[in-house]
Simulated assay, not measured.
Amino acid sequence: MNGLFRYFALCCAVVILVSCGWVEVPSEGTGTSRYKSSSTVSQNRSNQRQIPGTVLVQKGDTVYGISRKHGVSVRSIIDANNLKAPFHLNKGQRLRLPQGPVHVVQRGDTLYSVSRQYRTDVYTLAKNNQLKSPYTLHAGQRLKLPGGAQKKPTVRNARTSYTVQRKPTTSGLSPRVNAQPSYKPTTVAKAKPRISRKSIPKPPPRSGSRFSWPTQGKVISRFGVKRDGLRNDGINISAKRGSAVMAAENGVVAYSGNELRGFGNMLLIKHSGGWITAYAHNEKILVKRGQKVKRGQTIASVGSSGGVTKPQLHFEIRRGMNPVNPKKYLGS
């Protein structure tokens, strides 16, 4: 009889505790138990759930780190959340993420074709959208674009692949990944630079059928598609910083500048027969647009400008708009 009474009393106590809204929740990292209100637990879960357009600050997060992770600028995060210097963040703080430009995927789009439209690179698009190889896209999918990305206008020119205008060009180069995928912040391209056929001299005749090597060093990135689905339109040659970069053939400098994202200080040299060679990541450029150069002439010095961290030369050979494997056209 006494045992039955104790059992009944225990059941009543449990019912009373449950009706009061208390549950037993283990405390973090101790293995012991601590009592918390069920309403508090619900509130914590509500705070931790994902809310579109926001991010919940974790321990160790910084404004810069969040901007890199989500592909938005530091300034836009500061402005959107009215943050004040020195911009310290607290764990559990919720930040609004500014909605940057997006591209709605159309039928037939590829990550590469989208990168071409917005003058960015495949690596940045894949990273901003957390895409994995083989980077398959679906119609209607929304791709976050890097801050400052602008759609490249459609250009028509019946006589040549390059548009005639007074400003210099990098339109002969596709903004694809051109080196090892170790990127650092670079300046976003401004107005579209273009080659002007009217304002540069006619290229001199070539000295031979093959091009010469532009610098001495080890090839660290070969032409073509990589394992992760990215593509190199040329080759990358590791060399000592400051080493001479030489013209691969007689020609005329069609572009000298650093407007194209990821390529740093770059030269385009136009050769007779519709050939173009490109030299990127230079430390210094020693020739000007419109200047005629000879095969083997020093035109720049090896550096690590643009989207690379180690001294190297990104070198391309193009026939018109089409990149070709430089090793097939370089002399021994």
Rank of each mutant, 00 (worst) to 15 (best):
V72L: 05
I317C: 03
R116I: 13
P204K: 08
V252T: 13
S46K: 11
S46G: 01
K91L: 06
S238L: 07
W275Q: 06
A126P: 05
P146T: 06
V308E: 08
V219Y: 08
N44V: 15
R159T: 14
Q93N: 01
R289K: 13
T186G: 14
L97T: 06
V287D: 11
G31P: 07
N232I: 14
P203G: 02
L111V: 14
I16L: 14
A179K: 09
V225Y: 11
C12E: 04
Q130E: 10
Q106H: 08
V302C: 04
G273W: 05
G306A: 04
P203V: 11
T62F: 11
T298R: 15
R116T: 11
S199Y: 00
A191Q: 13
L145F: 02
P201N: 10
A9N: 13
I200P: 05
A278R: 02
L125P: 00
G217Q: 09
A300L: 00
T62H: 09
K202R: 12
L268K: 04
Q216K: 14
Y123I: 06
T298P: 14
S174A: 13
S243R: 00
R318M: 02
K152L: 12
N82M: 03
S304N: 08
F87L: 05
G140V: 00
T32H: 12
V63W: 02
T124S: 11
Q117D: 03
V14M: 12
P185C: 04
L137A: 02
V72Y: 07
Y118R: 02
K152H: 03
Q216D: 07
F211Q: 04
V25L: 04
F263T: 02
T54N: 03
Q297E: 15
C20F: 15
S115G: 13
N282I: 01
Q291M: 11
G229W: 00
L97F: 07
E24L: 15
S182T: 15
Q141T: 08
P203I: 10
G273N: 02
T309Y: 04
V114A: 03
S171L: 10
P101V: 11
R34K: 14
G296V: 03
K288F: 01
A278H: 03
N81E: 07
Q141F: 09
P214K: 08
Y123C: 07
T309L: 06
K184E: 08
P204A: 07
L286V: 10
P326F: 01
Q58V: 10
S133D: 05
G290C: 01
T169L: 14
Q141K: 05
I16N: 06
G148E: 04
K190G: 10
L17G: 13
F8E: 12
S207V: 00
R119C: 15
I235V: 09
G296C: 02
A248D: 01
G229P: 02
H88D: 12
S256Q: 03
A280P: 05
G60Q: 05
A300P: 04
L4R: 06
E316Y: 02
G274N: 11
P101S: 15
Y64G: 14
P153V: 01
K192F: 10
V105H: 01
V287W: 12
G273E: 09
G234Y: 05
G307S: 10
G264E: 06
I269P: 00
K202D: 03
N322K: 14
